[in-house]
């Protein structure tokens, strides 16, 4: 099957029930998207599918052919970080940072729809992402400032 990730077409020879997360991490060696729960409950694996943040661990790769997939690796442009990435860096909005890829992807998904979200809108949009180090207040600030 063929998928488009970060504006590049890839041919994959994997079983249909392979998750998008495994396809990215194992078969394309794009390891920025993380495994955290395997049931779409933590958000560490989120990627943008046609601009919307989706949990890749419960998305069969076969279902996203002919769609645009953007992972954390695809946000940087010409060596310049996406404003959300830069804001996370500026705000030190992480500790172990294992959740950061999924957080940033979710935030980019939100900002695409709603460039100036309120604090409450950020909280609602990010509810599916867990930061186990619990620096949530800094993440909220980073997203608002980005």
């Amino acid at each position: 099957m063929k998928i488009n990730v970060n504006s590049t077409d890839y041919n994959l020879d994997v079983p249909d029930n392979t998750s998008l997360l495994d396809a990215l991490r194992v078969h394309l060696n794009l390891t920025g998207s993380k495994y955290g729960c395997g049931e779409g409950a933590c958000g560490a694996c989120k990627v943008l599918i046609d601009g919307r943040a989706v949990a890749s661990c419960i998305t069969p790769v076969a279902s996203v052919q002919n769609k645009s997939i953007i992972t954390i690796e695809g946000l940087e442009k010409d060596g310049k970080l996406h404003p959300v990435q830069q804001a996370f860096l500026d705000e030190d909005a992480f500790q172990c940072a294992y959740c950061s890829s999924g957080m940033i992807i979710s935030a980019v998904g939100l900002k695409t729809k709603n460039p100036k979200p309120s604090r409450q809108q950020v909280i609602e949009a990010m509810q599916g992402n867990i930061c186990r180090c619990c620096v949530y207040p800094r993440i909220i600030n980073a997203i608002i400032k980005a």
Binding site: T31, E76, Q86, L89, A97
Partner: peptide
């Protein structure tokens, strides 16, 4: 700031997994 922060926000840091 976190000394290797950029490698984390860009998904480049290699955790063991």
């Amino acid at each position: 700031p976190k000394v290797n922060g950029r490698s984390f926000v860009s998904g480049k840091h290699k955790y063991v997994s």
